[in-house]
């Protein structure tokens, strides 16, 4: 019988977080806790705050992307089927894209896009001469 994926078989497994024998020192053991969680290397700094840390990082990233990546929002809205419901969404996304452009929030994507276009066209040194 195979009991779960061995530690180290997944790329997200870090050696120092490997479940051990008696690493969990909390006296109030939760009965719903699974074997791996019970034996996890809790002494690793910050290990217990994984969920909060990941959720906060994703929240920051999503908010920052809403502000700085209006391109993606406008592209997504433009691909929506034309309906009465989608019209205001498309208008809102386009307005935000324009406003973000005026505020200079699209600068990162615009600069990378321009650089990528130039790099795609760059010829071989010999042909350049």
């Amino acid at each position: 019988m195979i009991h779960g994926l061995p530690w180290g078989a997944s790329p997200i497994d870090l050696a120092e977080e490997a479940p051990g024998e008696v690493k969990f020192l909390d006296t109030e053991l939760d009965p719903a806790m699974g074997a791996l969680e019970r034996m996890a290397g809790w002494q690793v700094p910050g290990m217990r705050s994984g969920l909060r840390w990941a959720a906060q990082a994703m929240a920051v990233s999503t908010l920052a992307l809403l502000a700085l990546n209006s391109h993606a929002l406008a592209n997504w809205a433009d691909q929506l089927p034309v309906t009465r419901l989608s019209e205001p969404v498309v208008a809102l996304a386009d307005d935000w894209h324009a406003a973000a452009g005026r505020l200079g929030l699209n600068a990162v994507v615009d600069h990378v896009e321009a650089a990528a276009t130039a790099m795609r066209k760059a010829p071989w040194p010999k042909a350049h001469r």
Binding site: L14, A35, A54
Partner: peptide, 22 residues
């Protein structure tokens, strides 16, 4: 055999697993 035992345990997320996943 690799996944079924994971379904039967309460999920948890270490900071290392979250970071490596990202």
């Amino acid at each position: 055999g690799h996944i079924l035992p994971q379904l039967r345990e309460r999920p948890w997320l270490s900071r290392g697993a979250a970071a490596t996943s990202l």
